[in-house]
C-alpha cells in the first residue's frame, strides 16, 4: 500500500526546544493509527506540523501528493473560543471551506449537506443554538460534523474523546470506523490505552522522540510506556544544540 504521509527526520518545536525530535517513518494510506504518549510528548505538536501550522526546525513532512486541503483537522476543544457568538449551524458549515472558500455561496445543495452532517452526529434541531450553550459532548459532535463536511483523505484528530461521556464516545468512534472503512487515513492522539488497543491496529508511542511505532500490541508494552514517561520528563532549559 502507498504512503499517505512520510516524516523525513522531522524535528518540530517551540523556541528552539524540540517537541518532536527526529521522527522518521511513514503512515500508510488508509491506516488507522493512534498517537499515544504522556502530556508534553509532542502529539499536538506533530499534528500542528502535519496541518502546516508549525514549520519544522529541520527535516520535513511529505504529503505524498495530497494537498493541504485534503487534510481535515480536529483541534483540541480548549483552542476554541466558546464565548464567540456563532451558531452550531455556522460552525458546522465551516467544513465547507474547501468548496466555498472566502466568498463562495452556500446554496441549497450545501445546506442539505450541512443538515445531513448534523443529523449524522445526532445534532438535528441544534442549528440555531449558540456554541456557548453546548455541553462538552455536543461541542465535540459539532466538530465531528464539521469534519464530515471537510471530506478529508487524511483526518487528524487531536484528543477527540477527552471529557465526553461513553455514549458520545461510542457514537464518535463509529464515525471513525466509518472513515476507516472508506479507506481514509485516520490519525488520532489518545490517552485511553484500552480504547487504542481495541480500536486502533497501529500505534505510535511518542515521548518527543519516537519510542515505538508499529502494531499496537507491540508498541504498548509496559517497558515502552515506562521508557516514554522517563524520556518525557527530561526537559533541559540549558540543553546543548543538537548535533544530529
Amino acid at each position: 500500500m502507498s504512503a499517505a504521509l512520510a516524516f523525513h527526520d522531522l524535528t518540530l518545536g517551540y523556541d528552539r526546544h524540540p517537541a518532536v525530535h527526529h521522527l522518521r517513518g511513514e503512515v500508510k494510506a488508509g491506516a488507522l493509527m493512534a498517537v499515544v504518549g504522556p502530556n508534553g510528548a509532542g502529539k499536538s505538536t506533530l499534528f500542528k506540523g502535519i496541518v502546516g501550522m508549525l514549520k519544522p526546525f529541520s527535516g520535513g513532512i511529505d504529503l505524498c501528493g495530497l494537498r493541504a486541503r485534503d487534510i481535515a483537522y480536529l483541534p483540541q476543544v480548549a483552542d476554541i473560543d466558546r464565548t464567540f457568538p456563532i451558531s452550531v449551524y455556522d460552525m458546522v458549515a465551516m467544513g465547507l471551506w474547501r468548496d466555498a472558500g472566502l466568498f463562495g455561496g452556500i446554496g441549497r445543495r450545501e445546506r442539505e449537506k450541512v443538515r445531513a452532517a448534523m443529523s449524522a452526529v445526532g445534532l438535528s434541531g441544534f442549528e440555531e443554538r449558540p456554541i456557548g450553550t453546548l455541553s462538552g459532548g455536543q461541542m465535540q459532535r459539532t466538530l465531528f460534523a464539521r469534519l464530515l463536511l471537510q471530506d478529508g483523505r487524511v483526518i487528524v484528530l487531536d484528543e477527540p474523546f477527552n471529557a465526553i461521556d461513553a455514549k458520545t464516545a461510542a457514537d464518535l468512534c463509529d464515525l471513525v470506523m466509518r472513515w476507516h472503512a472508506e479507506k481514509r487515513t485516520v490519525i488520532a492522539a489518545l490517552h485511553d490505552l484500552d480504547l487504542v488497543k481495541s480500536m486502533f491496529p497501529e500505534a505510535l508511542l511518542l515521548a518527543r522522540e519516537p519510542v515505538a511505532w508499529g502494531a499496537t500490541k507491540d508498541v504498548l508494552t509496559v517497558e515502552n510506556l515506562l521508557k516514554a514517561r522517563r524520556m518525557c520528563e527530561a526537559f533541559d532549559e540549558h540543553a546543548e544544540a543538537c548535533a544530529a
Partner: peptide, 18 residues
C-alpha cells in the same frame, strides 16, 4: 468576514484550511 470570524472562534482550524 469569514477568516475574521473563524480566526476568533477557531484559529487552529482556520490555519489548517487557509
Amino acid at each position: 468576514y469569514r477568516p475574521l470570524v473563524l480566526e476568533c472562534v477557531d484559529p487552529g482550524f482556520l490555519r489548517s484550511v487557509s
